[in-house]
Nucleic acid binder design. Structure first.
Lengths: 196, 196
DNA sequence: TGTACATCAGTGAACGCGCGTTCACTGATGTAC
DNA sequence: TGTACATCAGTGAACGCGCGTTCACTGATGTAC
């Protein structure tokens, strides 16, 4: 069924991006093939290059998309907590360190899920820039929430929190299936309370 | 030059393992080919299967090797600090969070460098078990060092420290080249001081 | 100790396979009249 | 509004390539006498 309507074309492109955001987080950028990606979006692999220049190019777009989806979930939590920044920060931290988040890399935090892939990308690659920009936006949100309650430097508090969350969940995922995994989540929760 | 002496055979095998420990940490298990590995050990790819059953099998062995090398470096630091567990812990933390460690994944901490790969391995895989066992040994060392000074639970303190170190360096590596990277290292150092 | 020969560590060509990417083709969509 | 046709989104076969793995071969090593 070739030649699809413009509306459908846009939907297809969006579907590829959304699916890529999830699968790249779940299995890594090199762990997902173009054919697998397109199949998951309900298409065949040949049409890929009508939408994107290369897999690498999609990686950068999917990275932005993943952070957008993550930011939207965070915005919901902030809205739900009204003007209480401290409560919002506590909820974000708590949800981050739950087993549900550990067990769902694809639907979770991209700062965490993409970090290792990004670290191995060459300096000039677009996906690195996409990650860096998005991470800064994420930190800005953390900083804003910290400002309300932080005794010290809210930017520093934001960095400490993100580093702790990422490290805790990284280890919890690597040890999943062993009691140690939940112990890491608990340790992360405890140390998080000592951030400003 | 075929048929090498037994001594040389053992040296070759050890060289493959050492090179694998470094390269798997640097580029990921899937990021290094058997041919690349053997070439780095000064051999050709065909001989690989005389030493190991499969690449997967080597991955488990290389994981253990990487943790052994890391443990040896840690033991040196502990020895250098005599009986002062607090000083040893401070030095380990300080060295971990230095730019030199950020810029040398291959010669650095395997708990960090292999975490993402391990998290994506299927539950039954030998490399997962190798990682888990080694990580527990590493935590045991941290726990022992914490026992001397910790006001609270030293096991919890060990987990908090490792989670913070891993998260801080993961983000520092993913943002390397930007000032944010050093800022993460600084934030990690600050929060580490609040662990018991 | 010296010789004859079996062993086997390492070589390099070859395998089947899946990858990212290209391209001729198809037929519904969108447009010109 | 209805018709004729150009456009182009998606299809699926094909490409070159590098992967993990296999295997016939080589010739120095190790052993038996």
């Amino acid at each position: 069924m070739p030649r699809v309507s413009r509306v459908q074309t846009d939907k297809n492109r969006a579907a590829i991006e959304t699916v890529a955001a999830r699968l790249f987080q779940e299995q890594g950028i090199n762990g997902v093939s173009v054919a697998e990606l397109m199949g998951a979006a309900g298409l065949t692999h040949g049409g890929f290059y009508g939408h994107f220049d290369s897999k690498e190019s999609l990686a950068a777009i999917a990275c932005l998309k993943a952070f957008e989806l993550s930011a939207a979930r965070r915005a919901e939590k902030i809205a739900r907590n009204g003007n209480d920044a401290a409560a919002a920060l506590a909820e974000i931290t708590d949800v981050y360190l739950r087993p549900e988040h550990r067990d769902d890399p694809g639907g979770g935090c991209p700062a965490l899920a993409l970090a290792a892939d990004i670290a191995r990308e060459a300096p000039g690659k677009p996906v690195r820039a996409a990650y860096l920009d998005s991470l800064k936006q994420m930190l800005a949100t953390f900083t804003e929430l910290s400002s309300a309650t932080s005794a010290g430097d809210p930017e520093q508090a934001a960095r400490m929190r993100l580093a702790l969350l990422v490290g805790t969940l990284t280890l919890a995922r690597a040890t999943a299936g062993d009691p140690l995994s939940d112990a890491f989540l608990d340790a992360g929760r405890t140390l998080a309370q000592r951030i400003d």
